[in-house]
Design a binder for these strands. Structure first.
Lengths: 69, 69
DNA sequence: ACAAATTGTAATGTATAGTTAACATTAAGT
DNA sequence: ACTTAATGTTAACTATACATTACAATTTGT
């Protein structure tokens, strides 16, 4: 189960979904889907988001639960 | 430009592509493609690989060049 | 209360991640 | 030299990330 802190960190910078998407090169809907956990972005997009939000990928995304181990 | 250290870390554990793929729940070809940089895996798969190879995602994958910033 | 900005959500389309199978090539062991 | 395990590579297929458009719902400012 993939979890993330995108919405929380985005709020810290007062970025709208549209602004964050623009910086990362994706649409606002893509940011919305990620925040809702509706899909698992590529590592490339994840690295860009972590860079923009000034954190490590591991702090932005993590797996929860035991099934995946 | 996405770069990675999968092949190097896989060698450290003496895993074959097949063994690493099995642990991560993907095929050996998928591991082969990732090592060659032929595609950008999902964050979910990246997190699994980092867990198996006992490192941070940021140490396993990174972006090189200036274009993406 | 009103208007504007932001976000939620759904449909449809495209690009690409990832699978499977098959065969060629290389490396390692005997 | 021979055999086997591991890897490289290609093609065809499926699943899903992400784009685009449109409109509804919610939030925010005045």
């Amino acid at each position: 189960m993939l979890k993330n802190r995108v919405k929380e960190l985005r709020a810290r910078y007062s970025y709208t979904q549209g602004q964050l998407g623009e910086k990362a090169g994706v649409t606002r809907q893509t940011i919305g889907f990620i925040e809702k956990g509706e899909f698992s972005p590529s590592i490339t997009l994840s690295l860009k988001l972590a860079h923009i939000l000034e954190c490590k990928v591991d702090e932005l995304f993590w797996l929860e639960g035991e099934e995946w181990k």
